[in-house]
Design a protein around this nucleic acid. Sequence first.
DNA 1: CGCGCGATTGAGTAATTTCAAATCTAGTGG
DNA 2: CCACTAGATTTGAAATTACTCAATCGCGCG
Lengths: 188, 188
Amino acid sequence: MPETILRQHIEKIIPLTDDEFSLVLSHFTFEKHNKRDFLIRKGQAAKYVYFVVSGLLQLVSDDDKGKQHIVAFAMEDWWESDYFAFFSGNKATMSLQCLEDTVVFCITLSNYNALCAALPKIEHFLLVKSNNGHIAAQQRILSFLTSTAKQRYDQLLKRYPSLFQRVPKKLIASYLGVSRETLSRLIS
Amino acid sequence: MPETILRQHIEKIIPLTDDEFSLVLSHFTFEKHNKRDFLIRKGQAAKYVYFVVSGLLQLVSDDDKGKQHIVAFAMEDWWESDYFAFFSGNKATMSLQCLEDTVVFCITLSNYNALCAALPKIEHFLLVKSNNGHIAAQQRILSFLTSTAKQRYDQLLKRYPSLFQRVPKKLIASYLGVSRETLSRLIS
DNA sequence: CGCGCGATTGAGTAATTTCAAATCTAGTGG
DNA sequence: CCACTAGATTTGAAATTACTCAATCGCGCG
């Protein structure tokens, strides 16, 4: 049950009464999407932050030459959005797209703020999540600075082995910041 | 006055009464450091998160070959730490060092938690800061994926022109992820 | 079966690194 | 105030690495 997954996810950080969880849930909408659907399109508003119940998303940015770069994958239990666009109200600079059929909970900025006001301890939960997101992003920066593409590949494989069953290698290459040919040669 | 700078910084996000600010301040200590001092040393505990009142810090990681890589600079009004080590209690994997004489406020993890419990709205402030940090880190990842070193240089110069007056170019090169020789050739 | 997508392989090219040397600069002590 | 030194920057040349472009291979699905 999707609600149970969200509740257990939150309760890893903060305990909730039934009423409190109902309050939380009332601020979200629920959506099912098919593979290749876009949750956020570059150039349009980033209306929601998404919680992935099941499935897999890619956060993608295109460079000047139209080449796609994967900024992040988002799998079960992850929160994702174009956060800059979401919080600032600017047009999205990245797209968020389903790599599999995907089930998500969605929250708008006004509901995000309303929920924080209505239930202050959810702000603690969000702070923990945001800190973890910040740390993860910094680790990724670090890997670009200190590791070779081969090392980054090995780290990713070790940390998210299931990813390699779920996405084509060209997407792994895009995430690692190398061409698919180079990745192919690194592996063999 | 250092306290004023911290207060104004927080009040950009949330208003505070005098009593509330006193409460906030009582959770921090105050330190002055000289150029080249270490606030955090790799392999030791990351006891504090630091708020930079004045001066300049570098967050540095060494790779297997002992080469230094700059993960972040922290200037006036910035918060910095080895956040993973700070929150997890693990030994620091990065060092935080003064590039100039630097004045900071320091907060321990237990005071961080105590302050959040004592003054819930500071959690809102910290959430905004953490979200912004996450966004900034993601922008940096994006720049590694989509931009050339020259473009990253131009972006940095545009965004933080003062940095180029304050640090040697070899540190800029380290931050951008290229050798100092390459940076030198990119500029000319 | 054949099409399309993904993965691999090869060859040539472009970019970056490394190592070495030369030059420049700022701060120190005499 | 000058000379000196350590650190910073630039330049050169060779070696490495990754990229692009192209061709081929493999496999699953209609």
